[in-house]
Design a protein around this nucleic acid. Sequence first.
DNA 1: TTTGTAATCGAGATGCAGTATCACTAACTG
DNA 2: CAGTTAGTGATACTGCATCTCGATTACAAA
Lengths: 146, 146
Amino acid sequence: MVRTRGNPLAEQLLETLEDRGFRDTLPRRAVVQAIAVTERHFTAEELREQLPGVGRATVFRALKLLVESGMLCRVLLEDGNLHYQLSHRGHHHHLLCVQCGASQDLVGCDIESQLQQVAALHSFQVSGHWLEVYGRCSACQSPQPA
Amino acid sequence: MVRTRGNPLAEQLLETLEDRGFRDTLPRRAVVQAIAVTERHFTAEELREQLPGVGRATVFRALKLLVESGMLCRVLLEDGNLHYQLSHRGHHHHLLCVQCGASQDLVGCDIESQLQQVAALHSFQVSGHWLEVYGRCSACQSPQPA
DNA sequence: TTTGTAATCGAGATGCAGTATCACTAACTG
DNA sequence: CAGTTAGTGATACTGCATCTCGATTACAAA
């Protein structure tokens, strides 16, 4: 395993980890680099297949670190499977295409304030929420109707 | 295993299953009965512990049937654990107390229409969503401040 | 009733995602 | 450069769920 210069995104992720006190190690670097070049959401297993030289536990540890640091987010698919995906923003949600599996971030959604109000009717104090939206992306709508 | 007269709710669940073409068997009856008398949301494992005489696969098969028939719903806890809970209404969401674990249904939440609008900005056609709300229930708020 | 048969059951194997252990190694620190 | 400590990885294990397949049972037709 050789220390390669990763792509800019990978470097940035590594830097953030360093800022949080974590070391810049070769295996970690490999995991982060693999994630940085992955377009779609992925499972831990898929990631592992791309990293035959990295131990199983290390991959999971890196995933956990990145999730806890807010750089990676979990995505719950409609079939219940849990995937991972790079997180650029802070809190946000996903529009998941049930046909092609693509995911795009949902921006401009101010659901929390609405939740606060409705929950208040139940005397419930909201501290967080989890939302996934399923449907069809623009590319999967018109082209092939049926 | 003896055929006992279950409580009314259990009988109703069984009937619905029968209407859908599923048989009224003793093990199934036991599973449904156990679910019907459970107040809180529960894990498959907890349910299984109450049913030592019923096979593992049978419990899971019954859970799946009930979920697919809309009588049981899955609840995703904040820690990522999946629980099950009786579903009285149709589509609804849960207010999950992170302190005592209680769950109450969120009524009067018209989130889907709001989602449709926001998603439309992305040319995304919404077909469904999953929402869990975390926070503190009324009982867990005032009594013990810290 | 009796009987045919498809649904269902259950024991155990298997799958899959993630964690625990622990001896070893590599990265930072002084 | 040596010491400290985080990190690594092989492997065992856990938790939750599904698969397999021969045995059993519910239901309905005779």
